[in-house]
């Protein structure tokens, strides 16, 4: 390379807007609600947002590699209902039920991934089918009303916390979220993570470069399933047992990922931005709540957001380019054009 390699902040395209929106919302929250005048308010927000953020991270892996995972919402419901039934209030059952739940998440992801890659059914359809299958299975098994109860030690992940000297009360769900987020960000910087994004961009190129496309795609679904199971454990603790606990979460997670500037169809976007998208969504709902807007409007707001975010991503690129061209024209009257064409 002729030009010296310049350091560039590693913000993937589309990350900046979501961070800006998030910052504005967080400031607005401070003005709107007295609870946000001190850190605990924000910590509570983070605790509320943790399950969705974890789901969004899982959804990110699938979307960035070129797929969709619509099954996570009903997977969350199924996990919570199963946990309640198996534990049935017994403290001793917790220890083996949690690994079982995580394994079930992996299994569902594995099935989604294998059907998508081996039978070549579009992931949209496979996971839609999985959504219906899980919904139906839960309904059949519970007869509409979930039975049993979660044990206190199970619920501690979702509602409990640890008291620290400076930070005060730190919820376990926030700790778990941070661990997942850091691990996901590290994974996306690794060779496997970069290759996963490349799969979403051009899977033929990856296959011809000797990459294991099938394995990578299955991995994305497995991670999504595993993280959905984790989100279910937090949600079960936080919100308790109901047959509606996971309802609509798949679309909320997809909205969050899109809001984070991740390209639908794959190939671009950062996992941190996807998580930030989820936090933004949760912050927005909290703000609307504080402003007295009816909770019934939430899904309408979500609909507007998902359309606007995608429109911004496809239209905004052109607008930004146009803006850059105008500023560049002004400066080029003075200086020579940047030599980015070809040669010399």
């Amino acid at each position: 390379m002729n030009a010296p390699t310049t350091w560039r902040p590693r913000l993937a395209d589309g990350t900046a807007p979501v961070l800006a929106v998030l910052a504005v919302l967080l400031v607005a929250l401070a003005f709107a609600g007295p609870a946000y005048s001190e850190p605990t308010g924000y910590l509570a927000l983070l605790k509320r947002a943790a399950p969705l953020m974890i789901l969004a991270i899982g959804q990110y892996f699938v979307i960035v590699s070129g797929g969709f995972d619509l099954s996570v919402g009903s997977l969350v419901t199924a996990e919570v209902v199963i946990a309640a039934r198996l534990i049935d209030g017994q403290e001793s059952a917790t220890i083996w039920v949690i690994p079982l739940l995580l394994a079930l998440g992996v299994l569902v992801g594995l099935v989604n991934g294998l059907i998508t890659t081996k039978l070549l059914v579009p992931s949209f359809i496979v996971t839609l089918g999985m959504l219906l299958v899980l919904d139906g299975a839960v309904f059949l098994w519970t007869g509409g009303a979930p039975r049993g109860a979660l044990s206190p030690s199970f619920r501690v992940f979702g509602r409990g916390g640890i008291d620290l000297p400076v930070l005060g009360h730190l919820p376990w769900s926030v700790v778990i979220l941070l661990v997942v987020l850091v691990a996901a960000a590290q994974f996306m910087r690794s060779g496997t993570g970069r290759t996963l994004v490349a799969v979403g961009d051009n899977q033929d190129a990856v296959r011809l470069a000797g990459g294991r496309v099938v394995r990578l795609k299955v991995l994305a679904f497995v991670l999504s399933g595993l993280l959905a199971a984790l989100a279910a454990i937090l949600l079960g603790g936080f919100a308790g047992v109901s047959a509606q606990v996971g309802e609509g979460l798949e679309f909320r997670a997809i909205t969050a990922v899109v809001l984070g500037g991740v390209l639908l169809g794959g190939g671009r976007g950062s996992v941190v931005a996807a998580a930030a998208g989820a936090l933004t969504l949760e912050a927005l709902f909290s703000l609307l709540n504080l402003l007295g807007v009816s909770g019934a409007l939430e899904s309408a707001v979500q609909g507007v957001i998902i359309i606007a975010a995608v429109a911004y991503a496809s239209l905004g690129a052109n607008l930004r380019l146009g803006f850059r061209s105008r500023t560049a024209t002004e400066s080029s009257t003075r200086s020579t054009p940047p030599p980015h064409k070809e040669n010399r």
């Binding site: 060779g191 970069r194 490349a198 961009d201 190129a205 470069a209 000797g210």
Partner: peptide
């Protein structure tokens, strides 16, 4: 269509084979 992942950086493309295979 077979050689490059066009939306990825020069760096990610140059390291694609090494990382993938």
């Amino acid at each position: 269509s077979e050689g490059l992942a066009l939306r990825q950086s020069i760096r990610d493309n140059a390291l694609l084979v090494r990382r993938a295979a």
